[in-house]
Design a protein around this nucleic acid. Sequence first.
DNA 1: TGATAGAATTCAAAACATTCGAACTAAACT
DNA 2: AGTTTAGTTCGAATGTTTTGAATTCTATCA
Lengths: 314, 314
Amino acid sequence: MPSPHREPAGPPFRAQVSDIDLRLLRVFRTVVDCRGFAAAERELNIGRSTISTHMADLEGRLGIRLCERGPGGFAVTDRGQKVYEAIGRLMSALENFRSDVGAIHGLVVGELTIGLIDNTLTDPNSPVRRVISRVRAISDQVHFNIQMLSPDALERAVADGRLHVGIVARATDHPALRYRPLYRERNLIYCGRGHPLFDRPARDLGLDDITAANFVSLGYKEAFQGLARDLRFNGKATSYNMEGVAMLILTGDYIGFLPDHYAKAWEARGLLRPLLPETVDSMVEMAVVTRKDHRWTLAMRTFIDVLMEERAIP
Amino acid sequence: MPSPHREPAGPPFRAQVSDIDLRLLRVFRTVVDCRGFAAAERELNIGRSTISTHMADLEGRLGIRLCERGPGGFAVTDRGQKVYEAIGRLMSALENFRSDVGAIHGLVVGELTIGLIDNTLTDPNSPVRRVISRVRAISDQVHFNIQMLSPDALERAVADGRLHVGIVARATDHPALRYRPLYRERNLIYCGRGHPLFDRPARDLGLDDITAANFVSLGYKEAFQGLARDLRFNGKATSYNMEGVAMLILTGDYIGFLPDHYAKAWEARGLLRPLLPETVDSMVEMAVVTRKDHRWTLAMRTFIDVLMEERAIP
DNA sequence: TGATAGAATTCAAAACATTCGAACTAAACT
DNA sequence: AGTTTAGTTCGAATGTTTTGAATTCTATCA
């Protein structure tokens, strides 16, 4: 097990970062990603002793113990975690440089990091897949990096430059970010087979039945519009991911909102049923989010241009 | 004057930017700032031949002629100018990294996950809220994550590392955990309005009345001390959460132990009454629980240090 | 028209660094 | 106690930078 940690000795912080070889940072990043030297050795194609030297070197330069390691296991220290995150930002700046140089050549190249909230990729209304294809057709030198994140993590990542673009359900606006409407996702209230309301004929269903039933809400993404916003649900459960909401609904004990494209598969198998779909459908507005400053790479500009052409709402 | 320029030969743009040494970029920047190699030589403290090699290397890697130079004078090409600007942005990202690292240096950072058993946060004797404030005053970079758990879940979570610290009513000791007394919670026997004993004058109340009445006990947290431990109650109901105990007592059918801080609100409204508070008060010892091994983060160490200073009992 | 000075390049040798593998240490699991 | 796993240390081998001396190139002056 990692032993009690001490910061490396020596002059505490002479970190001339410009002198820090990026290799050291890359080594540390890989070590963290691989959770240890052994796996990183294969990933980086260098000997373990080299990794050891590099880690010691980096820790010495930064004056920070980055990870605890030994026969007992591997653990990143909390400071090491912060350094890891800072390295992520730096690497993304480096990718942007690469992209800048590509743009000087007149080429759309480099990395394009896109963040999505989960279960939006299956939505046929989402233009994202189409746009990716079109950008690839313009240049196959763009390396797409898709990440699934929670809405707040996503906005933070766009704001601090770790993501180029995000697609979110628009809720509260972050001041440094620009939101552009993209498409709407239809959310309906579903109940699962076995729920008292499941077999009730539509004409015998009222809003009262819905507000009276146990309701499970998604922890974030409460950007409902229209009638849904005004109803007072009988909230009895919360889940921070959509799978969790779906699961609770499928038990037959709860009702709750789900995107219709997501529920469709279960609906077809007779496991879910939308309640009052004409009355309480809630359209959630999905938006592209970018930084307000205009330090865009060419790849990013191209992506946004195509996205704006393909968007479903103005 | 600059002669007609040609791009360096070779594969046009294989720029693996991550492999580009930052030194090359810094040399180019200085050369541009100094408008020539001669002045840059003094600025950089390296030989002119080195600068020459580096420039050739960088141009080769980027596939871009960056500047025209020679006996006729020095001039940055317009592409070189763009690269120069891109380098400026990259260097500023590097500065950010440097300052990130500086900020991490000497700071208490990271996440601190604390587990509590329910209805302890309102206890004025509990130093936890005060300690959180004090730790926040030391560093606002600590992200607190508070969870409410049942005692056994809490001990398991601390033992397997999901929680950093737990605050529990001390009962049975888990072998891998260390318990340190923190404060005492006063538990009294309450009965609700409508109960036969509710209106009985204090002088007509005896221990017999209490052991004869229907008693609701809390499923866990049976760490009563003093007289309470020895009394044989007439247990007729059990609840695994405190709300449940309170509810049963409030019906007027049961009596049972409740922490006084918790019962106070109902007591003030005339809905609960403590029975023989001088005789059967039971002090439950609350303790901090941590892992015995010393895999502590700095945030955790700080939290525990402050907690030990603020604790009510030694 | 050539001599000259200034500016950059080339090249082999010296200085420096990185990398590797073998031997070593230390914790955890038989 | 013995084995396995994980990382560290160290000297030797291998690479890469840096250097200064020699060389090239071109604009300007006599």
